[in-house]
Design a protein around this nucleic acid. Structure first.
Lengths: 209, 209
DNA sequence: AAAGTCATGTTGCAAATGCAACAGAAAGAA
DNA sequence: TTCTTTCTGTTGCATTTGCAACATGACTTT
């Protein structure tokens, strides 16, 4: 995905983008699978590949908070834990990331450039989307049982594809981590649901009945 | 709290606010306890009192998603469910709310007024805060046990006051609802934690040891 | 005063969940 | 290929949790 196509630059022309690249001191970097992506005080825009956003626990283990692909945005605006220094972004599929230092966005541009307000407005829309994503996760986690969480998650996925079936974007282990439940217990529950005819599973393809 | 003091209008003068009130067609309304606050496509700014944001379940019961006081902001920007039509805002303590139709904020002002970009920038900061709040809730709910959720919630409260102790902003029933756990089970767990010397409780005042 | 409502405390019990441990399958690296 | 790692499926068991039911006290309403 091209930078210009990213929602953050919606309404910006190619020429303007060129100018902004300098004005915002944007930097492009590539990462390979499993590599950790440094975030500091930057906003990261994912042009290609996919990454996971994880929280580092006291015991050294990781909880996946999010998983995103092309066009995804991550950084200090979007999460509580970055400030706490225990947020870890990991490249899942080799990716290209454009970094922008937050201060270029937050602070008013001394050159009073016109693009600035446009980007702020776009960022606002992205934040809205991010709030929706978080609300979605809260909604999922608010269900008390594993089955409840699974069904809720499945329904969200189903709504996104529009079809009755969809594919998990990651492994079942990762799903358990995302849902904050025990993997084996989840596996057990999935089997039950399959037996009860609630769902069909073929590998990572799932069909809600 | 005065409207001018609200973070949404940070950096705006009294005169400008006057102008904006017309430009944005802002409307002020009062509500009494237990009253439902209609939201439509508005942003609501809470000047006085407090409200709860609840989700309406299929069975007619309500889950509290949030509880906010003076200066709080709610509306379509801030939650997933409003669009789904099952979000219900309820006045908890008699309150005053200022409504702004979202379109006045989202769309570029035809009069190209200067305040507009300022408000968008402020709104961006508010969204950031909202993202943090949601991340906080996700963090709380990501703990698997009731004890884990309680301790996590307590620590957040503690950090906010800065002291070792703090007071619940609502009832224990409401807390259980907020944490998405069974009230009686939570009550049982709190007793255990008290006996183990992890916490001290005097009514709704809690001290982390 | 009497009735009703709500917050809180308590308990037994069935069901759900987490945990630990193990094993085969699949995928990737050497 | 072989070796290694990760993913996945499974099971027993102790613990936790949700649920239902009931009791009490504070407060409000009639």
């Amino acid at each position: 995905m091209k930078l210009l196509e990213n929602p953050l630059f919606h309404g910006v022309s190619a020429g303007e983008l060129e100018e902004m690249t300098r004005c915002f001191e944007m930097e492009e970097r590539k990462f390979r699978e499993k590599e950790e992506i440094p975030i500091h005080k930057n906003v990261g825009i994912l042009l290609e590949g996919s990454v996971s956003i994880n929280r580092l626990n006291a015991d050294g283990s990781l909880d996946m908070l999010e998983y995103m692909s092309d066009g995804g945005i991550f950084g200090s605006f979007f999460s509580l834990f970055e400030e706490m220094g225990d947020l870890i972004v990991i490249c899942e599929k080799s990716c290209t990331v454009v970094f922008i230092d937050t201060c270029h966005i937050t602070k008013r541009c001394s050159r009073a450039c016109h693009h600035h307000s446009l980007v702020v407005e776009n960022l606002l829309n992205l934040m809205t989307e991010k709030v929706h994503q978080l609300s979605e996760k809260v909604e999922i986690l608010s269900h008390r049982s594993i089955r409840g969480k699974l069904l809720c998650y499945f329904q969200f996925q189903q709504n996104k594809t529009g079809n009755m079936d969809f594919s998990l974007p990651f492994s079942y282990s990762a799903l358990a981590s995302y849902l904050c439940v025990d993997r084996s217990a989840m596996s057990r529950e999935l089997k039950k649901m399959k037996n009860e005819g609630l769902i069909q599973m073929q590998g990572r393809k799932i069909t809600l009945v």
